[in-house]
Design a protein around this nucleic acid. Structure first.
Lengths: 171, 171
DNA sequence: TATGAAATTGCCACTTT
DNA sequence: AAAGTGGCAATTTCATA
């Protein structure tokens, strides 16, 4: 049923932006930081009735402006003490090799995010592990056994400065 | 200052993990992907009563295992077509310079995440911009006017392979 | 504003130490 | 026996037409 909406109306994600007004922006800025706020609390924040806030958020979710609603789990609390950023270079930039590598990323639990990028590297991965030994074990499994990979550079995260994926939203 | 918190109230994040049982793990794995599931739905998923699920999640939030509950906004939908990953090297690795740079990150809207890392670079930033021109304007403002910065390397994101911050949680 | 749905709490039972 | 956790039911709060 939600699929229907998405198929029927062209997906807002790709030509939006003028369709968002100041109040939408305020709502998004709020729920980006805390999506458990009630409609009443949001209403207070943006000077609108609770019902109107609710309707707007429903629309933003249906249109795909809000992609997901998630809980952020502390890596350390679940036993992943180590976060590492890895720059990966592939042997060659060929579509099938790239696709194969994307699939490997998707199928590997340790990789939280993978970016396919231009520039010095081909991919940038954010990887979590229990400890450095666990990371090493991961590299053996993920990198050394993969012939598509020319090389990789490891950078261990000592501190994360901004917590999450909060976008600046104006309009 | 963060140390203080840790000293004062024992922060669950640092000695947990055996305190999480299989059901906690299942709940976390669910809400990491969708935190709008009702207690009834969660109950069904993990084979427990809705009340118990609710109480467990409340505990996980209070203990900091769940750090936050947020909506993920589509960058494109809010007019940020370009995502860039930047490797930054500082002139010298001195505590005050590092702290100053962290503050700069916190105060700069375009920077979504900043990692302080070991290795070839000192910081890795995830930056969003309206377009490449907007990114260039950002580099002028953020990098060229900052004397602590030795250099930076830009890598434009062409594709994001995994969407979000979903951790593998076993127990 | 009215309705039903969901979150939240008190109370008691059961299990583990 | 005490502490911790689960389940039911009642109440309050919230979502939604």
């Amino acid at each position: 049923m939600q699929e229907f909406c998405i198929l029927n109306k062209p997906d807002a994600r790709f030509y939006m932006s003028q369709e968002l007004d100041r109040i939408d922006a305020a709502l998004l800025n709020a729920v980006q930081r805390n999506n458990r706020l009630t409609s009443d609390e949001l209403a207070e924040l943006v000077n609108l009735s609770p019902t109107a806030c609710h309707r707007r958020l429903k629309r933003l979710r249906a249109e795909g402006v809000i992609e997901a609603d998630v809980s952020i789990v502390s890596p350390k609390a679940v036993g992943r003490q180590v976060t590492v950023i890895v720059l990966v270079s592939l042997e060659r930039e060929r579509a099938d090799i790239i696709d194969r590598f994307k699939t490997a990323i998707r199928n590997t639990r340790e990789v939280m995010i993978g970016y396919y990028v231009t520039g010095d590297a081909d991919f940038i991965l954010v990887v979590t592990a229990k400890d450095m030994e666990g990371y090493e074990e991961f590299t053996r499994r993920f990198f050394y056994e993969n012939h598509d990979i020319k090389g990789f550079k490891t950078m261990v995260v000592m501190d994360r400065v901004k917590a999450s994926f909060v976008l600046p939203i104006d309009v």
